[in-house]
Design a protein around this nucleic acid. Structure first.
Lengths: 129, 129, 129, 129
DNA sequence: GTGGTCTAGACCACA
DNA sequence: GTGGTCTAGACCACA
């Protein structure tokens, strides 16, 4: 279900976090459901248990999952998962705005670049669902 | 002239690059003018010479400056400087668009976030905090 | 009779202990009455026999129940049950006081937090969410 | 400055976190000041660098400090440090209230126990500064 | 088996 | 040197 790219600049533990958040948002892991154990997921992903553990602990710190020693890890809040993704994306957008302004790009032009880069959509006459 | 923020997430070498590009675009370092030596700039910025060296090498790779062995480094192209800044900013905007879309942010909303984060200017109805 | 919450931070063996003490204090298990065997309770609760065993052993160590080799476990003292619960709660309150003081919370404020967190009852002006 | 108790049930990384928060709140580490490096603190405390790293990363996740690769870790917000301590203490108080109520302790009595356990104060006629 | 903690040691980008 | 990532492997409480 989760695929890792060992070449990526994105740390493995972060890829695992994103993968789990994605599964939660897709509804594949409803609230209250049990996640694979740290060790079993580590085996499945060919990663070290410590790396999976780090991902689980960050997700727990964000309120996305809850881990209970001896029993397992459970999905706690899909809303928290959504909020985590959103917060990161908003920060990226804000940083992009500052960088674009410094580069002499105008606000209108930046909006155009953003719009054209939007995945899965056309530049003009586009329709969104 | 260039100020570094040691607590910023932006690598020092990138801050130096941006600082030099900024001076070029401001006209403070016209094409053909000589840049400070790696060592003297390192001293002036309280930075590591290796770090300054890395910045100069990247700038040279981008065609912004030219280093002439034994004689120093010179501003080569203000146009290249402008292009570098712009290219980086466009890439950042495109990456931000992809991340925002993945996070479930709508295109309209993303444009709003971008606009509100724009430094310096205000749209009607905006307030600075 | 006893319900376990696998997602709770409270260890299962402690939940079992509290459950049995609760039944004793409610009069559902009078002194001298026989408790279910470790194995049958484990089956009933879908718990590990080792976990039930640990709960029984702690309760025995506290004088709440008595295990007679080969014949089963019996409620020994409702008074001991009451004392155990009370002692644990008092220790928790004392630890909470120390932690709150260290965190710079005033004694009055701590009393207010305690009171507001009190389950079930309301003081005037309180609202439940 | 920070002393560890290897026997304690409190994890070493948490002891380090608490120690640093304590130093910040005491004013020994003002905002913007640089903390000892992960490695140097590990040597000073006879702990593993990974353990110190974990403490630093949790503190960063809470907004208490900011770490920048190659440059060091800096105190970011004394207010965040205060909030972390406070949040933990409030949660402990709330859990204590629930446990006391279950144990049949009355709200008034619990307040008395809390007050008597308050460190450095007397039971009656006490004065606070 | 399950999460959690800790040590040891390697490697990386950046300074 | 400085933070950050990752693996390997040990040990613990709890189930």
């Amino acid at each position: 279900m989760i695929t890792l790219d060992p070449q990526s600049r994105v740390p493995i533990y972060r890829q695992i976090e994103n993968g789990i958040i994605g599964l939660i948002l897709l509804g594949a892991c409803p609230e209250g459901s049990r996640l694979p154990s740290v060790r079993s997921l580590a085996v499945k992903l060919s990663a070290n248990p410590n790396t999976v553990q780090k991902a689980y602990q960050e997700l727990e710190g964000w309120g996305v999952i809850a881990s209970v020693g001896g029993r397992g890890s459970f999905v706690r809040s899909a809303e928290a998962a959504r909020a985590v993704l959103r917060r990161q994306a908003v920060q990226t957008l804000e940083a992009a705005a500052r960088e674009a302004a410094l580069a002499g790009i105008g606000r209108e032009e930046a909006a155009g670049i953003l719009s054209r880069a939007w995945p899965g959509e056309k530049e003009e006459g586009e329709e969104d669902d």
